[in-house]
Amino acid sequence: MTADHHHAHALRRQGELAVLRYVHANPGSTRAQMAKALALGTGSATEITTRLRARKWIDEIDGPKTGTRGRPSPTLVPHPKGPLVCAVEIGHERWRMAIVELGAGIVEERSGRHGARDAESVLAALRKQIAGASRECLPRLRAISVAVSGTVQRGRIVQSTLGWSNVGIEALRIRPGMALLLGNDASLGGVAEARRGAGRGVAVLLHLTIEVGVGGVLVVDGRPVLGASGAAGEFGHMPFGDRTLRCPCGAHGCWDLEVDGRAMARHLGQPPPRDPRSAAERTLRDALGGASRARKAVASVTAAFGRGAGALVSALDPDRITLSGLARELATAAPDALECAYRDALMSFRREAPPPFALSALGTDGVLLGAAEVAFDEVLSDVRLAGELR
């Protein structure tokens, strides 16, 4: 291939890449909308779309009827035989798996409880689930992306609510060369909220979630800020709590210990719960049912969460804060306690117009969708497409 041909090929691939990324972010848009957004001429938009349809990456279907005369404009959608990614969520008690197509549509989903909690057993069971995806899906899989309830550093799980330490996930690779990605569940949930949820269109988003402890991520222009080794966002281990309490992470006074089911149990005079998330749910139900001690426990935990959120605003200066998991439920159950503690923790210049809280728009699907998003970031990269789009 001559230098001119190589250059032309690279330019063509860049055009295809831009269109694929646009369709992924905006499924259901028309070709005219895509062309305008990418500053493409009509001829170029048609040529690229035609090539990608022939390769079974995208398709065009009739758009919805609008009530006006004439045929509705066709819309750009994922091809029914196009590329897929597998998103896996490994939680404290349960796992979930989803096969996801371009545009973030879930094609197939499975879930269950851990039969055993050691890393080897859990990963072996998950590999079987991935390999058991429908025969039509498996040949189209381009990447596996795993979200774990724990700290991830340089592609390994260094600490987890399951008790894992220094664990890799190579056991999940079902085909040589397939992209295999690993991320923290809270960080990936924030990516999804920034791109497709309550934080969409926000330049600097702070996402916070509570499950067992509190985690989250700062997302800037849709990209998570993960630090030098990928372990950023462990907000729950900032010393916003009682210094007499030792956290499982090894530190004292972690914010984690003030904001979940463990804190609620202490306020109620109960022993530490085996599953802090389920314990928190029970206490919330009691509080909403009118039990005064449960209401006080929920209010205390919510205030502790609000104070920490105010401190993070001073450190990170976000435009908005999205809340998911138990954080979302606390904001709904005790909004006054949250708002009062949050404002009290803010520097005075912020109190007139503080970054607002926004409840998650994605619910329990946020983590899976975030894992799928980073998988498609890999699939829709120049390096990967160089081998796909020839």
Results as ranks from 00 to 15, higher is better:
residue 387 G to I: 07
residue 219 V to D: 02
residue 372 A to L: 02
residue 236 G to Q: 07
residue 7 H to W: 03
residue 319 D to Y: 01
residue 85 V to K: 06
residue 65 K to H: 13
residue 42 T to L: 13
residue 135 R to D: 06
residue 195 R to E: 13
residue 139 P to Q: 14
residue 359 L to S: 13
residue 29 S to T: 10
residue 134 S to I: 02
residue 129 Q to R: 14
residue 349 F to N: 10
residue 28 G to L: 10
residue 223 R to P: 00
residue 287 A to M: 03
residue 6 H to E: 14
residue 184 N to E: 01
residue 379 V to S: 08
residue 56 K to Y: 08
residue 115 G to D: 13
residue 62 D to I: 03
residue 97 M to A: 14
residue 132 G to L: 10
residue 179 A to I: 14
residue 217 V to W: 03
residue 149 S to W: 07
residue 350 R to Y: 12
residue 52 L to F: 09
residue 120 E to G: 11
residue 275 D to S: 15
residue 240 F to I: 07
residue 322 T to G: 11
residue 165 S to M: 10
residue 252 H to K: 13
residue 183 G to K: 07
residue 204 V to Q: 12
residue 105 G to R: 12
residue 376 F to N: 03
residue 246 R to N: 04
residue 263 A to H: 04
residue 214 V to G: 07
residue 75 T to Q: 03
residue 271 P to I: 12
residue 357 F to N: 00
residue 154 R to Q: 14
residue 354 P to A: 06
residue 154 R to I: 02
residue 237 H to W: 02
residue 120 E to L: 12
residue 229 S to F: 08
residue 283 T to A: 09
residue 250 G to M: 13
residue 144 I to R: 04
residue 311 A to L: 09
residue 363 G to M: 05
residue 97 M to F: 00
residue 235 F to D: 01
residue 63 G to C: 05
residue 182 L to H: 10
residue 30 T to F: 03
residue 68 T to K: 13
residue 190 G to I: 07
